[in-house]
Write a protein that binds this DNA or RNA. Structure first.
Lengths: 233, 233
DNA sequence: CGGACTCACATTTTCGAAAATGATAGCGGT
DNA sequence: ACCGCTATCATTTTCGAAAATGTGAGTCCG
């Protein structure tokens, strides 16, 4: 049996680099590391307790995902936000997510229905704890991601699911910006419920329309309530 | 002097890591490093003359692009090919490229038309040198990539263009597999000419249909002539 | 006073050694 | 003979020092 004392840190990822990548991604999408922030190695080294090379590997991976901006010979920084980027990400998400929604509704089996229903149930339970500020709860964020992931999971294409996940993360940064400045939370719970029902009842046209509205409303919210943050770069 | 829409000469990377990433991608895409091949550091170190860490950074970036498979604690290997992967990549390309083609036809200006025409011209000139085996000519491959890039370049979304480029590279591996085993080359020159004409004359429906056929025919060719390579994994 | 040049300094980038981990062969007990 | 255990080896993964590069202040001329 493995000796626990000798291996103090083996909780999450197997390699440190993968672990750092994961943690950095979380910090960036939640805007704990704000857009445009320079990512200096000595700072990261202290915060994450890893060496130059390991950090560099993580940053390179995130640069390929579009969350980090690599400026050759001048280091890395958190990818800046902008109106143009918001429009592009929203637009790309609609294109892909709508298509995947249709496919999932067509191909989804019993397991898919169960996954959709149970992830929504879990999301609603977490929402009850703090109905006013769900995005501040890390668990809500995870449950929200898993619900949307479940909705399209039966689409049959791991390739498109991976692309979708990347765009979802990039959009999540804007969701956080939006949430910090929106005066009152909109009725996300109701929207999620309606999407679930449309999906389970195999009403593809309705589900697709609801998803598109759901995605676009975030973009509108950011433009309305956090637009001043988008022109700094 | 206004910079040409197409820069055939790529600036060599300023950092070694970026350079190695580029060279490794070329080797993988052209199947110089065959699918499934283990990528051991000793071998790569000798072949590319870079250190462990630099190579690791390049491999991590390519793993995020889907060209390399990272097996934690057990190293890297060239991403394997499979029927399923071929179907997914083809399918995703059709979804995205068709949409971008429509947008480019709608938004394209004079510079776009010039880029499309000139990249096709260049492609045809290179084709004349060795009409039987164009894919063996690295310059043809570059010109081919640039023609297809030019076609959709006016779509207005850098985000979708980046996704498209990734899928194009993943598909290029299958093009190489297909070319090695196809008895006679198909009439790619004619197809490119037809696509160009449809695009320039703003016939979106026709252009889209031609593009889809163009993309799917590669998949069919691989299935027909190199299918035996796809079941090894 | 302004512009260009030089020289430290700060920061990134690269390297090879050292630690960690997985794979394998050899040994011993049942 | 077979299974499990251990020691050894091959390979990956991590580290901090060293080299390379960009940045900015200060200085010298016109």
């Amino acid at each position: 049996m493995p000796d626990r004392a000798i291996r103090p840190r083996k909780e999450f990822g197997k390699t440190i680099a993968a672990d750092i990548t994961h943690r950095l991604r979380e910090e960036i999408v939640t805007c704990g590391l704000p857009p445009g922030e320079p990512l200096r190695f000595d700072v990261l080294r202290e915060r994450f307790g890893a060496s130059f090379t390991t950090l560099r590997e993580a940053l390179t991976a995130l640069a390929a995902e579009g969350l980090v901006d690599a400026q050759e010979q001048r280091g890395f920084r958190v990818a800046p936000v902008s109106r143009q980027d918001l429009v592009e990400v929203t637009d790309a998400r609609v294109l892909i997510e709508v298509e995947l929604m249709r496919r999932a509704i067509e191909k989804g089996d019993d397991d898919w229905e169960i996954a959709v229903i149970s992830t929504l149930h879990r999301l609603k339970r977490i929402e009850q704890r703090d109905p006013e500020h769900p995005l501040r709860d890390p668990e809500w964020k995870i449950a929200h991601r898993q619900f949307h992931q479940a909705l399209v999971s039966a689409c049959g294409s791991a390739t498109l699911l991976a692309i979708r996940a990347e765009l979802f993360d990039r959009a999540e940064r804007y969701r956080h910006l939006s949430a910090s400045f929106r005066p009152r939370p909109r009725d996300k719970a109701g929207e999620h419920q309606a999407i679930m029902q449309a999906a389970i009842s195999r009403n593809a046209d309705l589900a697709v329309q609801l998803i598109e509205t759901h995605i676009r409303s975030t973009a509108d919210n950011v433009a309305d309530h956090a637009g001043h943050l988008l022109d700094t770069e």
